[in-house]
Design a protein around this nucleic acid. Structure first.
Length: 554
RNA sequence: UGGGGUGUCGCCAAGUGGCAAGGCACCAGGUUUUGAUCCUGGCAUUCGGAGGUUCGAGUCCUCCCACCCCAGCCA
């Protein structure tokens, strides 16, 4: 096995050079979510990049809540985000950090900027400010308040902090350049008045710093060396640097951007994900169909698979759409290697083995995994009456059909080869049962007469099997790029994204599964015992992902 | 004639002037008590386009084209 050296990517190259040249002695990164929603697959990528870069280079990674806009944030999100990061298997350095813990320092720096003549209080209304800002192709105009004296600005700023002004009445702005081609540099807003309680600081503040005035300084305070974000912040980098240059900060972090992850058939806009939750399209942020970390967890995806996927797709400055098939591959690979096997019949059809004694019971000991002896074995009760899947029987079929057919043989997985003799039909012509007989001596052996069955099917003892609820999930959207356009994503909801089988049959050992344990139900796919609803008395499994299926002309 | 980015196989992605890695997907075989796994083989005379420099260019230069981001008192 090759040593898994850190995947080569442009960020690793930068870090390597910085370490080699001595620009930094240690790599310190940070994952800085705003607690305004649950983490999704895109965040998982960012976490993988930030924690991964630190891990691979003997550095550290901080977890910092970028909580500068209390209106949309909450403690619920803070708790969920921490749980998700831990579940993914990452450990942040030291305590959890909060941008809000730096509010006083940030305010002091705002005062400093005013004193230096680099910031001013502006009384323009939001509408006026927009008008003064100009457009992408036309220069902006200076605010009429741009040349207030330092004294007046200091007084106004203090009164703003004291709560004398209404929301929207005034803002603090940096004095940069209203004609800058980069719109972010046209006297950006540093502070806005928001008379709302903050989940961390309560009512201590009535004004809050904007992302631009906070982020770089937070990084500097924490000694972050490489501040990694996504591409859309690229235009903010000049501003990020401007503050670091004009403020008496000690650290000198640098911002680098990489391309956002966009898996096909999924949405990664927090606003849209929230809408799915609020509109009841899904059961919640952790609905197994959601691309959230909590949703993927409940779906049965594993941390190892998610991390593998993040490594597979690389880290670049491109902004393409990654085929979800890659994510699915990572999930299947991990589960195939590690999940215990079991048998489950989703659409039961009774099979009566007419030659098998009514009261006979054989307890077959079979491998838990086809090529992992270390995973042990399980016991399968074999009896006269069994259930097989209705799709695995046909009165007649062509030779491509490798399952049970009247007058033909099939191997019952881990048990006997049987041959179908008769179809039992009810008054309306529906098949209610199949009568069959076993081929003697076929337990672990091929038929003595040399007539090998063409196929193998799963089964569950009708008398010893357990009932279970099985939730079959499929992709939430039936459009490759549902995120394109404004609200079109609601039109692309897959109406068949959830199909609940209320009375499936599972082999008895599966009922003992512990919540979140993953299995492969042979020939059906990978399933996980539901994190919340599963219990031995009332087993509930979620389909994580189907098996790869190349039998495409049934 | 606003600024900033990105363009290498259907998708992701190596490649940093020397003769186009790899993965996913797909196709064709083989093994198989899972139509799974596994194994073998196939899959870019060509790198957005056109010129140019060079013995030699995906890599350098010029021009052009396409797509993405930015005009929140969101992040």
């Amino acid at each position: 096995m090759m040593e898994d050296s850190p995947a080569s990517n442009f960020l690793q190259n930068i870090v390597s050079e910085d370490l080699a040249s001595g620009r930094v002695a240690e790599v310190v990164t940070r994952f800085p979510p705003e607690p305004n929603g649950y983490l999704h697959i895109g965040h998982a990528k960012s976490i993988s990049v930030n924690f991964g870069l630190a891990e691979a280079n003997g550095g550290r990674c901080h977890l910092r809540f970028d909580d500068t806009n209390p209106e949309k944030e909450s403690q619920e999100y803070i708790d969920a985000i921490q749980a998700d990061i831990r579940w993914l298997g990452y450990t942040w350095d030291g305590e959890v950090r909060y941008a809000s813990a730096y509010f006083q320092q940030l305010y002091d720096w705002a005062v400093y900027l005013v004193e230096q003549g680099n910031a001013y209080i502006c009384d323009l209304s939001p509408e006026e400010a927009r008008e003064y800002r100009g457009t992408l192709t036309e220069s902006g105009r200076n605010s009429p308040h741009r040349d207030r004296s330092v004294e007046e600005n200091l007084d106004l700023l203090a009164r703003m902090k004291a709560g004398e002004f209404d929301e929207g009445a005034r803002v603090l702005r940096a004095k940069i350049d209203m004609s800058a081609p980069n719109v972010n540099l046209r006297d950006p807003i540093l502070y806005r008045i928001r008379k709302v309680s903050h989940h961390q600081t309560g009512t201590d503040w009535v004004m809050y710093p904007t992302y631009d005035f906070a982020h770089g300084q937070e990084d500097a305070i924490e000694g972050i060396t490489h501040s990694i974000c996504t591409l859309e912040f690229e235009d903010h980098r000049p501003l990020y640097d401007w503050f670091l240059e004009h403020l008496p900060v000690t650290g000198r972090p640098r911002q680098y951007e990489f391309g956002r992850l966009n898996p096909s058939y999924t949405i990664t806009s927090k606003r849209k994900l929230k809408q799915l939750v609020d509109d009841g399209v899904v059961g919640g942020w952790d609905d197994p169909r959601m691309p959230t970390v909590a949703g993927m967890r409940r779906r049965g995806y594993t941390p190892a698979a998610i991390r593998k996927f993040c490594d597979m797709i690389g880290t670049t400055r491109g902004d393409g759409v990654v085929d979800v098939a890659m994510l699915e591959f990572a999930i299947r690979e991990d589960l195939n290697d590690n999940a215990v096997r079991g048998m489950c019949v989703l659409n039961p059809l009774k099979v009566v083995l007419t030659d098998y004694p009514q009261d006979k019971l054989e307890e077959l000991s079979v491998a838990a995994h086809p090529n992992r002896d270390d995973l042990g074995s399980r016991v399968l009760p074999f009896t006269r009456e069994l259930f097989i899947d209705a799709d695995d029987f046909r009165a007649e079929a062509n030779k491509k059909y490798k399952r049970l057919v009247l007058g033909k043989r099939v191997r019952l997985r881990n048990a006997y080869v049987i041959e179908a003799d008769e179809v039992i039909v009810d008054d309306e012509g529906n098949i209610t049962a199949v009568h069959a007989h076993t081929i003697p001596g076929t337990l672990g052996e091929n038929p003595a007469d040399g007539i090998k069955p063409k196929g193998v099917i799963q089964w569950v003892s009708a008398s010893h099997g357990k009932r279970a609820e099985v939730r079959l999930y499929d992709r939430l959207f039936n459009h490759e790029a549902p995120d394109k356009g404004d609200n079109a994503f609601m039109d692309y909801i897959n109406p068949d994204s959830l199909n609940v089988v209320h009375a499936a049959w599972i082999e008895p050992s599966l009922a003992a599964a512990v919540a979140e344990q993953g299995f492969q139900f042979e020939r059906e796919g990978y399933f996980v015992a539901d994190r919340y609803d599963h219990s031995p008395d009332k087993p509930v499994f979620n389909r994580t992902i189907g098996l790869r299926d190349t039998w495409n002309n049934g």
